[in-house]
Design a protein around this nucleic acid. Structure first.
Length: 244
RNA sequence: GGUAUCUACUUUGU
C-alpha cells in the first residue's frame, strides 16, 4: 500500500517516468503490485497519451494474474474521450462487456461528455435514455452536460422536454440545471422563456444564484432592455447576492 | 467504523 500511495502521487504529478521506476523497485523488492498500482500507472500513461505503454501495462497485469477492472476501463475510456476518439471509446465499452465488467455511472458520464464535446448529441442522448432504462441513474451533472450541449446547439425544445421529463420522474435537478436552460434561452433571445425558467426556480426549490442573475442580465442587455437589466440588479442585491 | 486507483455541469473575462 505504501508503494501504491507513492506511485499514485507520482502519477498525479505527471511524473510517469519516476512512477515507472518506482514500480521497478517495488517489483525488485518482491512486493506484489495490485490492481491499484496498475490503474495508477495506466492513468499517468494515458494522460501523457502513451497508449502503447498503457497497453503494455495491461499485458503485464495479466502476467500477475490481474485483470482490468472497472476503474481500469474507465480510465482508458475517459482518456480516449478527451482525445476526441469516441469511436475507440465505444469499442472499449464492448471490450469491457466481453470481460463481464459492467459500465457504471462514471463510464457513462465520460462517454456522454465525450460525445457531447464531439457534437454527437444524438448518440449522447440515446445513451442517457439507455441508462434510465437500465436503472443506472444518471447524475445531475450528466443531465446538465446534455442540456448544455442542446442549449449550445439552440435545441431548446428538446432541452425543455428532457428537463420536464426529469422533473416528472422526480429526478434531481439543481441550480445549474436551471442556469443552463436560462443561458440557452438567452442565447436565442427568447427572454420571456428565460424569465419563466428563472421564476420557476424559487418555487421549485432551486434558489437563483449570482450566475442565474448574471446570465439573465446579459440576456436583457443583448436585446437592449437595459431597464430590465438594472431592475434585476436591484432584485439581486435585495436577495442578499453580491453582484460580481 | 476510517485509509490507496477513474469522469463530469452553468454566467463574464483570460
Amino acid at each position: 500500500c505504501t508503494y501504491n500511495v507513492l506511485i499514485d502521487s507520482l502519477c498525479k504529478k505527471e511524473e510517469p517516468k519516476v512512477a515507472l521506476s518506482q514500480f521497478g523497485s517495488m517489483i525488485r523488492k518482491g512486493i506484489e503490485p495490485t490492481i491499484v498500482t496498475f490503474n495508477a500507472l495506466i492513468f499517468a500513461l494515458c494522460n501523457s497519451r502513451r497508449w502503447e505503454e498503457a497497453t503494455q501495462i495491461i499485458e503485464n497485469m495479466a502476467l500477475y494474474g490481474i485483470s482490468p477492472n472497472l476503474v481500469t476501463f474507465n480510465t482508458l475510456l475517459d482518456a480516449r474521450c478527451k482525445e476526441g476518439c469516441t469511436t475507440e471509446a465505444i469499442f472499449l465499452v464492448e471490450a469491457m462487456l466481453d470481460k463481464g465488467v459492467f459500465p457504471d455511472p462514471v463510464t457513462y458520464d465520460s462517454l456522454i461528455c465525450g460525445l457531447c464535446h464531439s457534437r454527437k448529441l444524438d448518440e449522447a442522448k440515446r445513451l442517457f435514455d439507455g441508462m434510465v432504462s437500465q436503472n443506472i441513474f444518471p447524475h445531475v451533472r450528466t443531465l446538465n452536460i446534455i442540456l448544455n450541449a442542446l442549449s449550445n446547439e439552440g435545441m431548446m425544445k428538446k432541452a425543455q422536454v428532457l428537463f420536464e421529463a426529469m422533473l416528472d420522474h422526480g429526478r434531481e435537478v439543481n441550480t445549474i440545471t436551471y442556469n443552463t436552460l436560462i443561458k440557452g434561452y438567452c442565447r436565442q433571445g427568447e427572454m420571456d422563456k428565460a424569465k419563466d425558467v428563472f421564476d420557476r426556480m424559487t418555487m421549485e426549490g432551486a434558489l437563483p444564484d449570482t450566475i442565474s442573475f448574471n446570465t439573465l442580465v446579459s440576456g436583457y442587455i443583448n436585446i437592449y432592455r437595459i431597464d430590465v437589466a438594472l431592475k434585476l440588479l436591484k432584485d439581486m442585491i435585495r436577495k442578499g447576492l453580491v453582484p460580481d
